[in-house]
Design a protein around this nucleic acid. Structure first.
Lengths: 221, 221
DNA sequence: AAGATTGTGTTGTTTTTACAACATTTTGGA
DNA sequence: TCCAAAATGTTGTAAAAACAACACAATCTT
């Protein structure tokens, strides 16, 4: 399959001439894949060979521990990249899974080819790497911010801090959760039913309103 | 002050010839600073101008929220780097503080100079940047792992998971906490006295033993 | 060395959470 | 469209956590 048109629309390849993109496709051994919702894009334990670039859809980076408890580490949206950090540290295996939460289109980029200086002196290799590293930095900041949420001493403060950050990102008191409520509980590291109770209470108090994934933050509270 | 000898001992400059290091010092506007224990190396809100490289000592990356609650996001040890991600995303200000937990020696590296292609075609600039990005990737992984700890549903599992990771890193059941217990509670996002109770219980059950910062993991449990 | 500050463990109380079980709704396939 | 599976909200209960207050130990300052 010719994956050329898919790459053209990605931020990572923005501003790169068509024939340079063609060259990069070979140089970086780029593969294109589609995944259905709930499909496993990366399975924890799997060999680290490719970085993934999510072109379309969304996915959760998650981990299941010995007790079977799921922890959702981060959410990936279209444009996001995952796995560069593993490659940079020469990790053998992924310690977390990436699971599609919608139907996804994904590019697989060979990690070794990406990180090591291209023998062909392939044009724009560095530009792509730089763009990907910026994406990684972005995730790094997001994860650090998530730690602040999770440090809050109760569910109410955790979820409010998270909702505020979504509202801020949306630039509006109205916004959509990127998760269903079960995923949200795993994202915040709390029990689902306890979260449900807290959300109901916040609604009853008039602090928030919500319907399915659509939320409104009514008071700064 | 001549900071040359200080740089030579850092991993970041490993394998770079002496006169190249001299050149880099100017090119990257590198400054050397000492900080006493408890001194603020970076204050949240401060302008992002430099990346810091911790040469000696240790520091906590932490955040104080509106309610005055402290959250310790990560611990920095000798060799660690902080602030690259902010620079890469053109953040104006730091949103977290970095506080010395021992007497520290620090290099300040101009972030713009580091990230943008050097006009002088200064030798080894890229090597330094690459080394620093690997350090960033390392922190990124650490932070993701921390999220897994914090996702555990009770203090017992959180602290045990953390102690296991320290034991694994030390390659021994005996190891030292990089925190005092108050800091540890802020690192894990739990109440200090509650943590103290859990640790005492674990000791009483024979799962762990500890004295000050020195710990032993007696059972996998 | 003395005094002040910080760190630590303990306890009791109150609040919050996890857990389990369930009913209902929604979603996704077949 | 119908069925099965998944998501959601609710409730009760037991367990755990936060909070506050305190005593004592350790550490730092002067």
């Amino acid at each position: 399959m010719n994956i050329f048109p898919e790459l053209k629309n990605s931020e990572i390849f923005a501003g790169i001439a068509d024939r340079d993109i063609q060259a990069l496709t070979h140089c970086l051994k780029i593969k294109f894949r589609n995944y259905n919702k709930n499909a496993i894009i990366i399975e924890q334990g799997q060999n680290v060979e490719d970085v993934i670039l999510l072109l379309k859809g969304s996915a959760n980076v998650q981990n299941i521990d010995d007790l079977g408890d799921i922890s959702v580490i981060i959410k990936l949206s279209a444009g996001d990249v995952y796995g560069v950090e593993n490659g940079m540290l020469s990790k053998e295996n992924f310690s977390d899974s990436v699971v599609a939460t919608e139907n996804c289109s994904v590019l697989l980029i060979n990690i070794k080819r990406l990180l090591h200086q291209c023998v062909n002196q392939c044009p724009r290799h560095d530009t792509v790497l730089k763009n990907i590293l910026i994406k990684m930095a972005e995730k790094h900041m997001q994860v650090q911010n998530k730690i602040k949420l999770m440090s809050k001493r109760n569910i109410r403060e955790k979820v409010l801090a998270y909702l505020r950050s979504l509202s801020k990102a949306a630039g509006s008191p109205y916004f959509d959760l990127p998760f269903n409520k079960t995923e949200l509980s795993n994202f915040l590291g709390v029990d689902r039913s306890a979260l449900s109770t807290v959300l109901s209470k916040l609604r009853e108090e008039g602090v928030i309103d919500f319907e399915k994934r659509h939320f409104q933050l009514k008071l700064k509270n």
